[in-house]
Write a protein that binds this DNA or RNA. Structure first.
Length: 201
DNA sequence: GCAATGATTTACT
DNA sequence: GTAAATCATTGCC
């Protein structure tokens, strides 16, 4: 069983729900240089007017424009001038919310991913971390605003479900500047999975 | 216009 | 543990 997630999956107003439900789903990229699939094992929710950690907290800008776009599209931005971050836009059009994909477990095309990254295919450094998984899967800045329902990057459900006890919630990484929002338990990961990022506290 | 900084990673000491 | 890479955005003059 394999089905591309429909627009309705992404249109829920609360990004936290989508972040939890994305665990176990399969991210799929058909790039100029090949095809790869990987299971999502770590996510973070961002958005709404109260989330000071969100890029949209201060309102709409050229960078975060795509966060206000249609549900089920991509928000890709450059972080620290070095790494690309891949987010899934959620909520109704005009409502700024997104889910950052922070860790994926390779399923298909791992050798190609390994070549891009310069690490062994069975090494977690391949795709455990938001900045490295985009490099591994060949997600570039031109993927910003890409439609995840019909475009060359998609997310599908292959029936895999993690039991509730395997899902871990915790603080988001790298948002200590965000005041109370820094403590929101909006980071979700699969307990014990080696492809979850080694995040600092 | 200029300076500081960040939803990170890696290689150092 | 600390620092560098590297640039768009932001805030302040």
């Amino acid at each position: 069983m394999r089905r591309t997630l429909p627009k309705a999956f992404y249109s829920k107003k609360n990004p936290v729900c989508v972040a939890k439900q994305l665990l176990g789903k399969v991210l799929w990229v058909r790039g100029k240089r090949g095809f790869c699939r990987a299971r999502i094992v770590e996510t973070e929710a961002y958005g709404g007017r109260l989330d000071r950690a969100s890029h949209a907290w201060r309102g709409r800008t050229r960078r975060n424009e795509s966060m206000f776009g249609a549900p089920g599209t991509a928000y890709v931005y450059l972080c620290y001038g070095v790494h690309r971050m891949f987010n899934v836009v959620t909520g109704p059009t005009g409502w700024p919310a997104a889910v950052l994909i922070r860790g994926v477990e390779p399923m298909e095309g791992a050798e190609r991913m390994a070549r891009r990254r310069g690490v062994p295919a069975d090494d977690f450094r391949l795709s455990a971390g938001p900045g490295v998984l985009t490099e591994a899967m060949g997600i570039e800045s031109d993927a910003d605003r890409c439609d995840l329902v019909s475009g060359s990057i998609r997310i599908e459900d292959d029936g895999v479900r993690y039991p509730r006890t395997k899902i871990q919630a915790g603080r988001r990484v790298g948002v200590s500047y965000a005041g109370p929002a820094a403590f929101f338990p909006w980071r979700f990961s699969v307990r014990g999975n080696p492809w979850v990022s080694r995040a600092r506290a």
